[in-house]
Each structure stands twice: as structure tokens, then as C-alpha cells.
């Protein structure tokens, strides 16, 4: 029983990490119908901005709430700029082009970030600074719940709620939904489409930065290719929950995290990654729109 509960906690904690990244994928897709493959590399940039800013501020070995919040803030701002530039320089010139062009560009941007990361930061993994001390919040019997687990879970949930609020209840969100419905019509109604799309990328990249910092704290080994596998899994989670759906992304990520944890814990640890992509295949076969997604039939 103890083992079971511990697996469940581990799974939720892993799932929240996938969810943080899946939120960014799903939001951009929901508005632009573009799978932004560069998202997982913006997440990597977030972790590295965190590393360098904490070194610059001289707080890499001064754990505390203030260090954590300042590093998180700098990294979110930094990644927003990166996200804005990616959209401005790579995606906007292709606005009128077929969707496939944008998709291939996204893969190109992703590779560009990964390999320029290897040149600038070096390919060697670096240890992430200790900006917040981990501690046991609960050690009941054999079950351990750490501060990081709770922080990550709470951050994910609150970011999800904030995103839902922005999209459903603000003017910006209304404009985003209008653009998502039909960009051309939206611009006829006086909505500044380019500005709205830029905002989407800025918010998405800030989310990725938060993910990078939280993962860096929990697994203090960061490297330029760290986004690849976790990005793919977050993408699968977004598809599982129904891509474009905010709550779906979080639900899908939790299912993925828990499923992975139990497969590794009770069965064969070698099948961990196979499981994620197995789920993707099954979903595409039986429920192409995902758990919470709605299937839009395209009429010709």
C-alpha cells in the first residue's frame, strides 16, 4: 500500500512537469493550429537563463524564496522575448503560407535552438543552482512527499487556472478566441491579429520558462538537448487530453505521468518511453480528438 501511494505521488509530480510544457503546446495549437515544436527548446532556454541569471546575481548557493522568485521572474521575461522573436522572425513571414510550411519551420527553429545551445552553453550537462532548498513536507510511514513535488503540482494547477481565466474571461482571451475561429474575419472586426498572436507566444514561452526552472530544481542536470524527450512526451500528453484544450492538456499529462510511473515501478522499466508513444498510437486510432477534444469535421 505504501509503495502504491508513493508511486501515485511520484506519478502526479512527473505528470505536473509534463503538464507545464503541454500547456504551452496546447495553447499555441488552440489559437494558430500550429504545433510549435520549438516550445520544448524555449523550455531549455528557460533553464539556462535561470542558471546564468542566478550566477550573475550571485545567488546560486543562496537558497530561499526570494532567490527562487527572482530567478523565475528573470527567466520568464527572458523566454517571453525569445518566444516573441521566434514568432516575429520565423512564423509571421509564413502567415499566409500552407500549414505544412509553418510546421517544418517549427522543426527548423527547434533544431536551431538545440544546436546553437550546444555552441553557446556547451554540450556538457551542467548542474542547476540550488535556489530553493528541498525538504520533506510529509513522511508518513514510508511515504515521502517533498516540497518540490507540492510546489510543482501547485504551480501547474494555478497556471492552468490563470490560463483558463485569461482565455475565457478577458478581452485578450476573447480576441484570441476570435483569431482562432477565423483570423481574417477577426481583423475585419478591428482585432489586431498580429499583436494577439505575439501575445499568445509570449504567454506560452513564459510558461515554458517556468517549466524549465522547476525541472532544473527537481532534476539539477541541464543540457541543450534536455527538451527533446520531455517535449515529445508533453506533446503526446496534449494530444491525449485533446490538443487545443487547456484542461485536457493537464489531464492528459497526469495520465501519462501516472501510467509511466506504474509501468516502471511494477513492470518493465525498459518500456517507459515505448508506453508514451504506444498511448499516442492508441489515441490516434480510437479517439483522434483526444479525451476532452471535440472533433471538427472539415466540410469542403
Amino acid at each position: 500500500m505504501e509503495e502504491f501511494i508513493q508511486h501515485l505521488i511520484n506519478g502526479l509530480s512527473l505528470g505536473s512537469i509534463y503538464a507545464l510544457i503541454a500547456l504551452g503546446y496546447t495553447m499555441v495549437y488552440g489559437i494558430l493550429q500550429l504545433i510549435n515544436f520549438a516550445h520544448s527548446d524555449v523550455y531549455m532556454m528557460g533553464a539556462f537563463i535561470g542558471l546564468y541569471s542566478s550566477r550573475f546575481l550571485g545567488i546560486q548557493e543562496k537558497p530561499g524564496l526570494l532567490s527562487f522568485i527572482s530567478v523565475l521572474f528573470i527567466s520568464m521575461v527572458g523566454c517571453s522575448i525569445v518566444g516573441f522573436l521566434i514568432e516575429r522572425l520565423a512564423y509571421r513571414p509564413l502567415r499566409g503560407a500552407p500549414k505544412l510550411n509553418a510546421l517544418i519551420t517549427a522543426i527548423g527553429v527547434s533544431l536551431f535552438l538545440q544546436y546553437s545551445g550546444q555552441i553557446v552553453f556547451g554540450a556538457t550537462p551542467q548542474s542547476f543552482p540550488n535556489i530553493l532548498e528541498d525538504a520533506d513536507l510529509l513522511a508518513l510511514g514510508g511515504v515521502h512527499l517533498t516540497l518540490f513535488d507540492v510546489t510543482i503540482f501547485m504551480t501547474t494547477l494555478s497556471l492552468m487556472l490563470i490560463l483558463r481565466y485569461i482565455i475565457n474571461s478577458t478581452k485578450l482571451g476573447k480576441a484570441m478566441r476570435a483569431v482562432s475561429y477565423n483570423g481574417q474575419w477577426a481583423s475585419l472586426m478591428g482585432i489586431p491579429v498580429n499583436k494577439i498572436i505575439s501575445m499568445t507566444f509570449i504567454i506560452g514561452s513564459a510558461l515554458a520558462a517556468a517549466g524549465g526552472i522547476l525541472v532544473g530544481m527537481k532534476y539539477p542536470k541541464i543540457e541543450p538537448l534536455m527538451g527533446t524527450m520531455i517535449g515529445l512526451k508533453a506533446f503526446v500528453a496534449a494530444v491525449l487530453g485533446g490538443i487545443g484544450n487547456i484542461s485536457g492538456a493537464v489531464l492528459g499529462a497526469m495520465i501519462m505521468g501516472i501510467a509511466e510511473e506504474f509501468v516502471v515501478g511494477y513492470g518493465a522499466s525498459t518500456y517507459r518511453d515505448a508506453l508514451a508513444f504506444g498511448i499516442l498510437i492508441l489515441i490516434l486510432l480510437f479517439r483522434p480528438a483526444g479525451i476532452l477534444g471535440k472533433l471538427n469535421v472539415e466540410k469542403v
Binding site: E3, H7, Y219, K221, E261, V263, Y266, S269
Partner: peptide
């Protein structure tokens, strides 16, 4: 007996099974 693959970052599932 547990296994992992290099580049993995999460080992808690294996470790929980080992702990038991």
C-alpha cells in the same frame, strides 16, 4: 533488479520499487 536508460531524469519509480 531495475533498469533505466542514460539521459533519463526521473528514477523515482524504480527507486520506490527498490525501497519496498
Amino acid at each position: 533488479e531495475q533498469s533505466y536508460a542514460s539521459q533519463d531524469i526521473d528514477f523515482k519509480a524504480q527507486l520506490t520499487a527498490i525501497k519496498a
